[in-house]
Design a protein around this nucleic acid. Structure first.
Length: 465
RNA sequence: GCCCCCAUCGUCUAGUGGCCUAGGACACCACCCUUUCAAGGUGGCGGCACGGGUUCGAAUCCCGUUGGGGGUGCCA
């Protein structure tokens, strides 16, 4: 399908950590820009009074880069900062006022309530025809025309709004600063945005913005409102209640490839009964028209499953490399030793942050012994005999996993035990736990000397000198 | 309150009037494999919110009900 290059934008406000829902909106926009050979504009909407801080902006940029959206791609444009365009916003407001599409208003919130009651009815158009001029303290309001505003939405279809139920909203505050509805439109106009893809919470804003475009005499962009992400209570994911910061997921060892793939399957599916799909294919196949209409639950369990798939798909070298942030703090960590066991580790993680707990016993002088595991494994009748037999056998055995396994199997046979039972005391002696990486491979990597030392220590603890 | 959106297994989804006895994935359960745990394999549990239409035929179209969600700032 040949499409004309789209100019899309992602316009977050830097009011906190970067939200997974924002990330998904950004991803949707990114796919559309890429697949049409268009442009992805990043515009930071920093016009809120005091809610934004510079570090949040950098957080957005870093998080987007983590997901693969940054200026190394030619489609990327920006970042722009909305605050830099205040002049244009005000100028547009002036044009609107001059053309009679807006009027000044000196009502306070209390004035309006006094007239309309507490009923939350919105502005009562009190100043509409009072002919007030611009003056400090007076807000500029949009004169909503009569009739119907029809929004053609690329994911929802046609949505109609009765203008009589739309209040004369504020364009410019009493202090002269532009409001979101206006600033957003003017920026989109200036930047040549042809398609606006954003979360559903913006759908009620759309008729208002479309009216501004019309009043400005410009052709509005196409609209697309994607469903919001919700928590288990089916409420919109919120920074206060929910764990939404992309950075937290990064820190817990989620791979960006897994995160972006998972995020894309929320409200959209790659088709053909598959979910784990190469990014290039997602970019090529994503279609707004196929996006679902209902909110999607952000399910960390499923994210973990995706992450596990992506972790297992890594080459061993890459796996070792991506584990670095979590392995570098392990005492006595040795990268080459880790690389030897890495293939086994890779199969068992759903989050990279779990790597330390899985392999630390290989580097510690003495493994941290889990009391329950010890009690269970060493309390068995055969624990000590197994330990002693293994010690004897391993003294001069060939030091590779197969030989070590065969040796322990022989010991078990002599006692009438299956390997599953025989390995338990050895595992606890060497690793400190009853579950973990494959035992014989671990012994091989640990080495004869250290392994025997641990076996002797365990035997000693059981009462044998 | 008012406006708007939405409604398939617990969750994410496939499904665009007959191919549906509703498919897949996650989670859960069982079994297999097995050196613990995983991974992998096999099987199981489990859904079209409800009521009316339209039609030879409805998960699919229409209306209503119910239930969820979003919005309703001189925030963005």
């Amino acid at each position: 399908m040949i499409l004309r290059p789209l100019r899309v934008r992602f316009a977050p406000s830097p009011t906190g950590m970067f939200h997974v829902g924002s990330a998904r909106s950004a991803l949707f926009n990114w796919c559309l820009a890429k697949q049409t050979g268009g442009t992805f504009i990043l515009r930071i909407e920093d016009t809120d009074e005091s809610r934004n801080q510079p570090e949040w902006t950098q957080g957005i940029i870093d998080a987007m880069a983590w997901l693969g959206m940054d200026d190394s791609d030619p489609c990327f444009e920006g970042p722009y900062f909305q605050s830099a365009f205040a002049e244009q916003h005000v100028a547009a407001a002036a044009r609107l006022a001059a053309a009679g599409h807006a009027y000044y208003c000196d009502c306070t919130r209390d004035d309006v309530i006094a007239r309309t009651g507490e009923g939350n009815l919105g502005y009562d158009r009190h100043c509409r025809d009072r002919g007030l001029t611009a003056e400090a303290g007076r807000a500029l309001r949009f004169r909503v025309p009569p009739g119907l505003t029809v929004v053609e939405d690329r994911v929802r279809g046609t949505v109609e709004f009765d203008n009589d139920l739309t209040e004369d909203f504020v364009l410019l505050r009493g202090n002269g600063s532009p409001m979101f509805l206006l600033a957003n439109v003017v920026d989109d106009l200036q930047m040549g945005v042809t398609l606006v893809v954003r979360a559903e919470e913006h759908l009620p804003n759309t008729p208002k913005q479309q009216m501004i475009w019309d009043a400005l005499g410009e052709e509005h962009p196409a609209w697309a409102h994607v469903p919001v992400l919700v928590n288990e209570q089916r409420k919109k994911l919120s920074k206060r209640r929910d764990k939404v910061a992309l950075e937290m997921y990064k820190d817990e060892g989620f791979l960006p490839e897994a995160m972006r793939n998972y995020l894309m399957t929320l409200g959209w599916n790659p088709g053909d009964d598959v979910e784990i799909v190469p990014w290039e294919q997602i970019v090529a196949d994503f279609r707004l028209e196929d996006v679902n209409h209902s909110p999607a639950f952000f399910d960390v369990k499923k994210l973990e499953s995706f992450n596990g798939h992506y972790i297992r798909a890594l080459s061993v070298d890459d796996f070792v490399r991506v584990c670095e942030p979590w392995t570098k703090d392990i005492t006595n960590f040795d990268r080459s030793r880790f690389a030897l066991i890495a293939p086994h580790v890779q199969l068992r993680l759903v989050r990279l942050s779990e790597v330390a707990a899985a392999v630390d016993f290989l580097f510690q002088h003495d493994p941290v012994v889990d009391p329950d595991s010890w009690t269970k494994a060493m309390g068995a009748e055969n624990a000590l005999p197994i330990l002693l037999a293994a010690l004897a056998s391993y003294e001069d055995a060939g030091w590779d996993a197969d030989t070590l396994k065969a040796g322990l199997e022989r010991i078990g046979e002599a006692m009438g035990l299956k390997l599953g039972k025989t390995q338990a005391p050895i595992r606890v002696a060497v690793t400190g736990r009853s579950v973990g990486l494959p035992l014989f491979e671990s012994l091989e990597v640990l080495g004869r000397e250290e392994s025997l030392r641990r076996l002797r220590a365990a035997a000693a603890r059981l009462g044998v000198a």
